[in-house]
Amino acid sequence: MLNYLFRRLNLLFITAFILSVIAFILTYWSSKNTLADADAGYIIQYVKYMSAILQGEWGLSSIDQQPMLIKGLTAFASTLELCFIAFITANIIAIPLGIFAGLNRNSLLDYLIMTIALIGLALPVFWLAVITTMLPRLLGIPLPIDGGISPVFEIPVVSGFILLDTLLAADTYQLDAFFNRLAHLILPSSVLSLFLITEIIRLTRHSITMVMKSNYVKAAYAKGLSRKEIVFRHVLKNALPPIIHQLRLQLSTIISFAMVIEIVFSLQGSGVWLLSSIKEGDYLALPTAILIISGFILLSSIFIDILLMIISPIKRKSLYVD
């Protein structure tokens, strides 16, 4: 198991190195005159750049002279918040549906569920996001469609996760700000969760079908267990690892969809931050975003791997990373 971890970390370092080189090239290209010792060789500049990065000095934004690292992390935290809420909602809806579809293959229920999943796959995210801004008006539901939180609330940025910050500012606004933020997140997260629901339904259905065909389920039938017992005791736990594994590969897609949705709904996350930075000419945002977002994806990959190792004993034996 340690062997596996070690190999995984190895992969992380190599990927991180390549990313840091890309970030270095972008920084160099975007701000030629702010790098010290422009005469020195590229390697020395790279080393200096890396040491600055590791010390936490990522440069200042050209718009408002704030440190780039803080801006980037704050923006990304907001994106993560959206992804998290969408993920939870999507799981609550999609996993039961996927299980039903997988257990009753080729039945009417299965076709119905797969139709829903296919529709979600076919709709483009940005189109759906724009339609959703108009939807509350049509249906008469008073949900907010713009902004991360109402401008009436001034929440000091502590962690970047606005839900947490609203709870921390509870003495000023009580819980109004928290609910307001939640309400602002409902529409964007439902758009993002539609895509996630599609993915999770398909994965769950496939995984459940595969597990139901496996030998130990047949043995369980032979032991005389009822279908319900088999599903709850044997199938669910074994169906989970492939789902998690596949979702890990989708992580970057989820984040990029989240950024598009943020732009449509004017949520102050990394999508809006990057777009406005490029418009204003603050190109230092690009390498910052690369480092933060890719770094996050790498780290979460590792965490997911560790999680997989914990819940699935088979994976503990595997030597090679896939």
Binding site: Y216, K218, A219, K237, N238, I311, S312, I314
Partner: peptide
């Protein structure tokens, strides 16, 4: 192949 007939996660 008895190993495949036992639940691998338990």
């Amino acid at each position: 192949h008895p190993r495949s007939y036992l639940d691998p996660s338990k």
